[in-house]
Design a binder for these strands. Structure first.
Lengths: 204, 204
DNA sequence: TGCTTATCATGCATTATTGTATGTATATTT
DNA sequence: AAATATACATACAATAATGCATGATAAGCA
């Protein structure tokens, strides 16, 4: 093609990211060549190398694209301090499960991260960023658990640290298994039930 | 080298599998070439291609090597019908966590499966075998949950299906997160606590 | 209006990896 | 003891992917 306008270039960039998201999620990151991404986006490799210096930069941009809405959500939640800490935890996790189950883009990203991407040294920056984002969420929820304990919603013997590690393990594991064998079980229904069970166990 | 005896050949094969396990777990499956596996095993690619037709066959053999002990364990457990279903479930899961945390070979395999291997179409047979093995375990535990419900250890409103999905999600998620950020939390201690919480939640 | 630069396409050289073919020496068989 | 098959090492050809260099065309700007 020829030189397009700036908006067109932005659109091309978006198309490339969309295509990468799809193709990576379908065929795996390292098993997908830049040419295949380009083809899926309807352009040539030249377009990719113009917008992204290499595959890792492409992936980084993919991650950056979802980091923004996540951060927004965290800020938004942080602004409205919730009355009931436990309810907030449950609502957040359920909301998260729902997003994974219904939003195809979130689902594709989760699939890439959990099943279509090898964590090797080269992707360390991406991994670190992912872990850092996770860690922020973990801290949020841990604080909520602490609040719940202080307000007597949970017995004081509960360790907020262990509670949050278990909760995140449960959520991640549910999503991991659900993505691995799609349709094996209804994620939202079973997931909410399992999380409810876990939260009840904390109260006992 | 030269022609060795049959036992030597078997040893070479073992070395190759050991090396593959290590190197795959460290650097990822697709990011590791056959030459690197051979080098780690102290042989050349010729040795690999003599024992395994390609990388997929090598991985399949890796999986086969752990499937045997797992099946043995299942049979062994099946032979001694346990008195207390819930205790058996807990003991099994704790045993599993312990194995992952302490046995470096099990740990390497789990790491490969969860973090160092892209699930693409080509590894479908491996994935299917993995899922089938999982499914057997899931059925075992589901039956145990049913038994626990029938014997009044759990309230009848509990769905054994959902219970087992949640439990496996929890265990897998704990291992997944622990492997992702090694040393982040003590797997056995926190894991047992979280599982205990979950099981208590089922009783409520 | 003319120059510069952004947006891509196309072609090329390099590299890495794979699979196989061949070689070789020894174990195993007859 | 001769023949054969095994257990590898080595060499080679084919493929594919990457990164870059170059080309083309129009947008943005003075």
């Amino acid at each position: 093609m020829v030189r397009r306008t700036k908006e067109d270039a932005l659109a091309t960039r978006s198309q490339l990211l969309d295509a990468a998201e799809r193709v990576f999620s379908e065929r795996g990151v390292t098993h997908t060549s830049m040419a295949q991404v380009a083809e899926a986006a309807g352009v040539t490799r030249g377009a990719i190398y113009h917008h992204f210096s290499n595959k890792m930069a492409l992936i980084e941009s993919l991650m950056e694209r979802v980091r923004l809405p996540i951060d927004e959500m965290r800020e938004q939640i942080a602004q409205q301090p919730e009355f009931d800490a436990l309810v907030e935890i449950q609502e957040r996790t359920n909301e998260f499960l729902n997003r994974v189950a219904t939003d195809p883009r979130v689902q594709a990203l989760a699939n890439i991260l959990m099943h279509k991407c090898e964590y090797i040294d080269e992707v360390n920056p991406i991994k670190l960023r992912h872990l850092s984002g996770r860690n922020d969420c973990i801290c949020d929820v841990e604080a909520l658990f602490e609040k719940a304990i202080n307000e007597g919603q949970l017995p004081p013997k509960v360790s907020p640290r262990i509670a949050v590690i278990g909760l995140f393990g449960l959520v991640d594991g549910l999503i991991y298994n659900w993505l691995m064998d799609d349709g094996y079980f209804p994620l939202v229904e079973y997931g909410e039930a399992a999380i409810n069970t876990y939260m009840n166990g904390l109260k006992a």
